[in-house]
């Protein structure tokens, strides 16, 4: 076994185990951290394939930004894990045989003699070429249409997130500085002509001085 193969199997094992733990971990924070670990090992696998740009993007974007936000949200929400696990044992007798059958079918198909993928080994010059440069050259030329579509999807995500969460609250004691500055005497003070009734000598005195 060559060195890259050892690295591949090691990273693959870590990836599979951590992905399994994401689903089985009791504590949601642990699950999120295992997801980070699985992303990191996937990035390692990509590095093995000379896809260094994708590997770095995965670390920067997913691990650095998305998962940190994810952890924030998990820590802010009080997730009741036991309620999520309701019905696990009730469903198990049905789910387990189904999963095993599926596993058996996939194992016979994939491990059998028919599924030999003619893997195209990256040619040696690929390692010398810059991955980032290659992506940059096609991203805005050949792939400009899907690129723009992805941008539209992000726009829809923004619109949807705002539409779903923004509530115009009533009865909020919020001060509008512009309105305060614009305030004029006429708007605030009303002069009322209170003339004392004549003849009786000025009505009753105030109840308390």
């Amino acid at each position: 076994m060559s060195f890259p193969e050892i690295v591949f199997y090691a990273l693959g094992a870590v990836l599979l185990l951590s992905a399994l733990r994401v689903v089985t971990a009791r504590n949601p924070v642990h699950a999120a951290l295992f997801l980070v670990l699985s992303f990191a090992s996937a990035a390692g696998l990509w590095l093995l394939l000379h896809a260094e740009f994708l590997a770095i993007t995965l670390i920067l974007v997913y691990v650095g930004a998305v998962m940190v936000l994810f952890l924030f949200v998990i820590m802010m929400l009080d997730i009741n894990v036991d309620r999520l696990r309701e019905g696990f044992w009730r469903m198990l007798p049905l789910a387990l045989p189904l999963a095993l059958v599926l596993l058996g079918i996939m194992a016979t198909t994939l491990a059998g003699p028919w599924f030999g993928l003619a893997v195209r080994v990256p040619s040696p010059e690929d390692a010398a070429r810059s991955n980032t440069r290659e992506i940059g050259q096609v991203l805005y030329t050949d792939y400009v249409y899907p690129f723009e579509l992805a941008a539209v999807i992000l726009l829809v995500a923004i619109v949807a997130a705002i539409a779903l969460t923004l509530r115009a609250r009533k009865n909020v004691r919020y001060i509008d500085p512009a309105e305060q500055v614009r305030a004029r005497r006429e708007g605030r003070v009303r002069l009322v002509d209170l003339r004392a009734p004549r003849g009786e000598g000025g009505g009753e005195p105030p109840a308390s001085a």
Partner: peptide, 18 residues
């Protein structure tokens, strides 16, 4: 192209979910 098919589908689905 598979990518445009998929992106169109996601654009549709995301709008519908919201």
């Amino acid at each position: 192209h598979f990518i445009t098919l998929y992106l169109g589908l996601e654009l549709l689905s995301l709008s519908l979910y919201a």
